[in-house]
Simulated scan of single mutants.
Amino acid sequence: MRSLLVLTLVLGPPAWADVLIPLRNIRAQEIVTREDFRQEPVDVPGTWPVEDSVDGLESRVALYAGRPVRHGDLGPPALVQRNDIVTLVYARDGLQISTEGRALSRGGIGDTVRVMNLSSRTTISGWVTEQGTIEVR
């Protein structure tokens, strides 16, 4: 008990921060806006800060009313869906190679997705670009 008191005196009280709390249950893959959340002071590490904009983001997991939103729970909307035919692009030092592939997972801008090259049937990973193509390095 003394150690807890000493830690509180040395470190100070817990840091309360405003976090986002869903007003309703939100399904995974649903686009959200700021009106879907309320802000509440809570001491939960790893939660989504209020300063960050959530308008137009997609819920990656089901969000339940009254539970704080964590960092990985929201992300950019998916441009690539599973089983979509996508363009794979490899560009380096003036050389650009493009081919078609089948997306094995879904992802938004900047997400890493696995794709099967339709020509060679090999599975590779790449990043989703703003145009919906997959950049391979």
Rank of each mutant, 00 (worst) to 15 (best):
R121P: 01
V19S: 11
L11F: 14
D18I: 02
E40I: 01
L88Y: 07
D36W: 12
D55K: 07
M1T: 14
R27E: 15
L23S: 04
S3A: 12
L95D: 03
D84P: 01
V50K: 04
P45T: 03
I21F: 06
T129K: 08
N117V: 11
P14H: 04
W127Y: 13
L9N: 10
R92H: 14
G101Y: 00
A65G: 05
A17L: 12
L20H: 08
G126W: 02
E35V: 08
D84A: 08
S53V: 10
R92M: 11
D55W: 04
N117L: 10
E40M: 05
R67S: 09
S125C: 11
L23Y: 07
I85E: 15
I85S: 14
P68H: 03
T99P: 01
G75H: 02
L57S: 10
G66R: 11
W48P: 07
R67M: 10
R102T: 13
A17V: 13
E35S: 15
S98N: 13
A17D: 09
G46F: 03
A91H: 13
F37M: 05
G72T: 06
R121D: 09
W48Q: 02
P41Y: 02
A17T: 15
H71P: 00
E35T: 10
V54A: 07
T8E: 10
L11C: 12
E135S: 13
A103C: 06
P68D: 09
Y64E: 14
R106K: 10
V80E: 02
T8V: 10
G108D: 05
Q39L: 09
V32A: 04
L74H: 03
H71Y: 13
R92A: 13
L5N: 10
E30A: 11
V44Q: 08
D55M: 05
L7I: 10
A15Y: 08
S119G: 09
P76M: 11
E130I: 09
D36N: 03
W48I: 03
G94E: 01
T133E: 00
L104W: 06
R114W: 14
G46V: 04
S120C: 05
A91Q: 15
I21A: 00
D111L: 08
V128W: 07
Q96G: 01
P14Y: 06
R60C: 10
L74S: 08
A103H: 02
Y90G: 07
Q96M: 14
G101L: 02
L57P: 00
N83R: 13
D52S: 12
P14A: 00
N117F: 04
I21R: 05
Q131D: 15
E40C: 06
V128M: 01
P76K: 14
A103P: 04
G110H: 00
P13L: 11
T47N: 05
G132I: 06
D18W: 11
I85P: 01
L23R: 15
V61Q: 05
T47A: 06
N83L: 12
R137E: 11
A15V: 15
D43P: 08
G132H: 00
R38D: 01
R137Y: 14
P45I: 06
L9M: 12
R106C: 07
G101S: 00
V50M: 01
V115N: 00
E100H: 14
L104D: 05
L11A: 06
E51Y: 11
T99E: 10
T133D: 12
L4T: 11
